[in-house]
C-alpha cells in the first residue's frame, strides 16, 4: 500500500509540471496582452497614451521576453517564494487576491459533495431496490428535472423566492453586518445560513447524476450470484443489500471526489455571479477577459493542482474501499 501511495505521489510531479506549462501557455494564447487591452480601453475612453509609456510597462512586466523565460520567472517565483506575480488590474500581488476565494470554493465543494452524497445515497438505493415502484418513478422524474434545469436558472428562482417570501436578500456568503467582524458563532451561523442556497443549487445536477449512476450500478449488482449466496445464509434482506451489492455499487461515489472540483468550477461561475459569491469563478472569468495573465494563470494552476490532489485522494480511497484495486496495485509496485 505504501509503495502505491509513494508511486502515486511521484506521478504527480510530471503531471503538475505539464499542467503549469499548459496553464501558462493557455493564458498567453489570445492575441495581445493586458497592456494592449488596457491601452485600447483607455483610447476608447478618449485618453491618449504615450508609446514610450507602453514600452516601459511592457519592459517592467517582462512581456517582451520569450515564452520560456516568462514561464521560468513565473514558476520559480511560485516555487521559491510563493509569489504568484502581480495582478495588472488590481495592482496587487495575486496571492493577496486568490486565497480567500479558493478557500470559499473549497468549502463550497466539500459541502456540495457531502450534500449530494447524503441525498443521492438513500434515493439511489431505494430506486434500485424498488425498481419500477411509484417512488422510483417520482425520484427519477425529479432527478431528470434536476439534471435538465440550468443552475443559473435555479439560482435566479431561489433569489426571487427568498427575496419575495422570506424578505431576505440572497447575496454573498457573509452578510454585510458581519463583513468586518471577527469569526464568532454568529458569523459562522450567518455563513451557514447563506451557504445552503448555493450549495443546494450547485448540488442539484451532481446529485441527480449520482442517483442515476448509483441506481444503474446497484441494479446490475442486485442480480449477481453473491447476493443470492448472502440471502441463502439467512441474512435479513436489508443487511444483504447494504453489505454486499451496495458496497460494490458505491465506487462511483468515491470517484466523485476526483471530479467534483472541476465540475464545480465550471458549473458555479454563473451561480456565483447571480447570487454574488466571492468564489474563484467570477474572478477567474474577469481575469481571463481582461487578460490579467498572472491572476488567471495562478487560478488555473491552483485549481488544477487541487483537482490532481482530489483525484489522488479518490484513488487512495478506492484502493482502501476495494481490495481488488489494492492488491492489483501492490502486485505491480
Amino acid at each position: 500500500m505504501w509503495a502505491f501511495v509513494t508511486r502515486r505521489l511521484l506521478y504527480m510531479i510530471p503531471t503538475l509540471f505539464v499542467i503549469s506549462l499548459v496553464s501558462f501557455a493557455i493564458i498567453q494564447l489570445p492575441p495581445g496582452n493586458f497592456i494592449n487591452t488596457f491601452v485600447a480601453e483607455l483610447r476608447a475612453q478618449g485618453q491618449g497614451v504615450d508609446n514610450a509609456q507602453v514600452r516601459a510597462l511592457e519592459e517592467r512586466y517582462g512581456l517582451d521576453d520569450p515564452f520560456l523565460v516568462q514561464y521560468g520567472k513565473w514558476i520559480s517565483g511560485i516555487l521559491l517564494h510563493g509569489d504568484f506575480g502581480q495582478s495588472f488590474q488590481y495592482q496587487r500581488p495575486v496571492s493577496d487576491l486568490i486565497w480567500d476565494r479558493i478557500g470559499l470554493t473549497l468549502v463550497l465543494a466539500v459541502c456540495t459533495t457531502l450534500l449530494s452524497w447524503a441525498i443521492a445515497f438513500p434515493i439511489g438505493v431505494y430506486s434500485a431496490v424498488r425498481q419500477h415502484s411509484v417512488g422510483d418513478y417520482v425520484f427519477t422524474f425529479i432527478g431528470f428535472i434536476g439534471l435538465a434545469t440550468p443552475n443559473f436558472m435555479l439560482a435566479l428562482i431561489f433569489v426571487w423566492i427568498s427575496f419575495r417570501y422570506m424578505g431576505e436578500s440572497v447575496g454573498g456568503i457573509v452578510s454585510p453586518e458581519y463583513a468586518d467582524a471577527a469569526w464568532n458563532l454568529g458569523k459562522v451561523l450567518d455563513v451557514v445560513s447563506n451557504l445552503w442556497i448555493p450549495v443546494l443549487i450547485i448540488g442539484t445536477a451532481g446529485t441527480a447524476t449520482l442517483i442515476r449512476v448509483l441506481r444503474a450500478n446497484l441494479l446490475d449488482e442486485l442480480r449477481k450470484p453473491y447476493v443470492t449466496t448472502a440471502r441463502a445464509k439467512g441474512l435479513p434482506e436489508w443487511r444483504v443489500i447494504l453489505k454486499y451489492p451496495v458496497r460494490m455499487a458505491l465506487s462511483p461515489f468515491i470517484s466523485t471526489i476526483g471530479w467534483i472540483l472541476p465540475t464545480l468550477i465550471g458549473g458555479e461561475v454563473m451561480v456565483s455571479i447571480v447570487v454574488s459569491l466571492e468564489t474563484t469563478g467570477p474572478l477567474l472569468l474577469d481575469a481571463l477577459s481582461s487578460q490579467d495573465m498572472y491572476l488567471a494563470g495562478s487560478f488555473i494552476l491552483i485549481l488544477a493542482t487541487l483537482t490532481v490532489i482530489g483525484t489522488l485522494l479518490s484513488d487512495l480511497l478506492l484502493a482502501l474501499w476495494d481490495p481488488r484495486i489494492r492488491h492489483a496495485q501492490t502486485a505491480k509496485g
Binding site: 450470484p225 443470492t228 441463502a232 453489505k243 454486499y244 458496497r247 460494490m248 474501499w321 481488488r324
Partner: peptide, 15 residues
C-alpha cells in the same frame, strides 16, 4: 443450505 455453480461469482470479492 445451498452451494452454487460459480464459486467466483457466488462469493463477495471485497469481503
Amino acid at each position: 443450505a445451498m452451494i452454487f455453480q460459480e464459486p467466483m461469482a457466488s462469493l463477495s470479492l471485497v469481503h
